[in-house]
Design a protein around this nucleic acid. Structure first.
Lengths: 315, 315
DNA sequence: CGCGGCTCATACCTGTGGGGTATCACAGGC
DNA sequence: GCCTGTGATACCCCACAGGTATGAGCCGCG
């Protein structure tokens, strides 16, 4: 009659993932019979069949699929709750900042310096992650705050503080004719036949169709550019990982990219305040607007989806 | 060692809400000693003090406050999971649409008609709620889809389908000098000394300071206008609840309001497809853009916060 | 100052049910 | 036919959630 227990959700999720009671039980570290029984109980409790078990395999029913999706989110929320609490309880009182490796070098450096020089500044631990992973890390509660990019990253559900807005540059092989240009436009780089855009894996690990090479990390991408196989468009400051074999050319009409500090909406880890103050102080262009944004970042605008692929900052 | 159980979260939440073990236990329907023990266990498991119990009361510690916030969300997610699953299992296969009473009459009517006339259309149940409650209902999983208004409502975390964009009108007492005007501007209505904007309660039930009357429902507001005590700015179609004592005057420079169909991101209750198709067909202005929007609605722009108060559609 | 009242903690008992092992029932493959 | 692999059943056990009774600190009060 009561609320679902997370144990039930974990069990269900395991079976729904594996579609096999034996393996699911093993993954859960329990025996198979209790698992079977637990699922049956869950089905009775919800008054609905969750799996079709015709001999020769288990399959999710329609309602099972609903629960599969919802259970994943619910479990994530519970785990985030636990992680954030543990983090808050950690006596070493640091705040963890996550950013993708190689991005916004100088900005981060000056931000950390400015923060450290303030009175009562909580130590900041820097965590590096792969491209596009910051949002997940933040949502899971494994970090307190992230350095992200608008409109490249998905900022939905986060509050943000703008730090720096900048243009984008095209990184092309130094040997390529394009490298001689002083500046280029998006249409110049959009369909260079011998430099097709790289393809990033989707969440399920498969790749979209297309002519470009498949990549899963920035370093692979950098090397592919050096090899003359592709080009990319990224914020000017990401030039940090430029190779000698690369050339960077300003893209005049590329949408500007803003580096932002982001944290989960309505969550203010202690010590974030000083970091934010430092961030505001560091900003080079103190516009009239204070660059502070509410919970929901916009996403999926035409602009966003364009620069998403080209800058290689989305999976 | 494992994940938190929802029971632990429920218990913790009860104590954190009540700040009193006895009352919390009563609310949970258990005795007080097991509750005390459960909380202690939770504290040991997390390795952190959650409450300060100095005699004469219980108080949340800093980490307790973190868990209080997070537990609320996690429990909401679990309950939403259960509710959505139950709803999916319901053999009566209806889809529930929630809207605030009194808004978008004709539009809803034509939408429902268009939907009903389609083959294989799932029955639609209409649920009415108070102003600004749609988002919560949707998030809790108590409804499948909602009629909401951009930029008035908070659309964060929802996918949306635009239905109708329209201007706003000022509703003023028919006896007031303003009523004679053919049209007005926002600055005209912003500070009419004898018609101050009404004040809606905040989430905690308190009211912001200001000259206007306190209201908690549309009908109260309607009556206050009729009494010549206040005015408001609302989408033109909400005129439905206009009284004889009211006058509606177009506000030329008010931000246009778009009525949208909204549903939780990445959730597609079976049958939503037909409703969406009907919705697209009903739209009066089939622009080039198809009016479909991704998960994160923008919010908290200057425009949004302005029209939020005036249209009385945010608490 | 002693007394009762309030509140949370401790001690101890009990029963439910989650987990284990052993085994069955059923389908397919050779 | 037998064997293999699957999920379901049957049965046992003990860990732990929950109950009752009681203790212990802190008030306020006469």
């Amino acid at each position: 009659m009561d609320t679902l227990e997370t144990r039930e959700l974990r069990y269900f999720t395991a079976v729904a993932d594996e579609l096999h009671f034996g393996r699911a039980a093993e993954r859960l570290g329990i025996a198979q019979p209790p698992l079977s029984r637990a699922i049956r109980q869950l089905e009775r409790r919800l008054g609905a069949q969750l799996f079709d078990r015709d001999r020769r395999g288990v399959a999710l029913t329609a309602v099972g699929e609903v629960l599969h999706r919802e259970a994943g989110r619910a479990l994530a929320a519970v785990e985030a709750a636990e992680r954030r609490t543990r983090r808050a309880a950690d006596p070493s009182r640091v705040i963890t900042l996550v950013t993708k490796a190689g991005a916004s070098h100088e900005l981060l450096q000056s931000l950390l310096d400015a923060h450290a020089s303030r009175d009562g500044a909580v130590p900041v631990e820097v965590m590096l992650c792969e491209v596009g992973e910051q949002a997940g890390v933040l949502r899971r509660g494994a970090a307190d705050v992230a350095l992200m990019h608008r409109p490249v990253d998905d900022l939905a559900g986060f509050e943000t503080q703008d730090l720096l807005t900048e243009g984008q540059v095209a990184i092309v092989p130094a040997a390529h004719p394009l490298a001689a240009r002083a500046e280029v436009t998006m249409s110049d780089v959009a369909r260079v036949p011998d430099l097709p855009m790289a393809r990033w894996p989707r969440l399920d690990g498969t790749y979209p169709d297309g002519p470009g090479p498949e990549v899963r990390s920035q370093s692979q991408l950098a090397q592919l550019v050096a090899l003359g196989r592709t080009l990319l468009v990224i914020p000017a400051s990401s030039r940090a990982w430029q190779w000698p074999e690369h050339a960077a050319i300003p893209v005049t009409d590329a949408p500007p990219v803003t580096t932002v500090l982001a944290w989960p909406a309505h969550t203010r880890p202690a010590g974030l305040g000083t970091l934010l103050a430092a961030a505001v102080a560091v900003r080079p262009s103190p516009a009239a607007d204070d660059g502070r944004h509410g919970p929901a970042g916009q996403s999926s605008s035409a602009v966003a989806s364009t620069s998403t692929r080209t800058s290689g900052s989305k999976r």
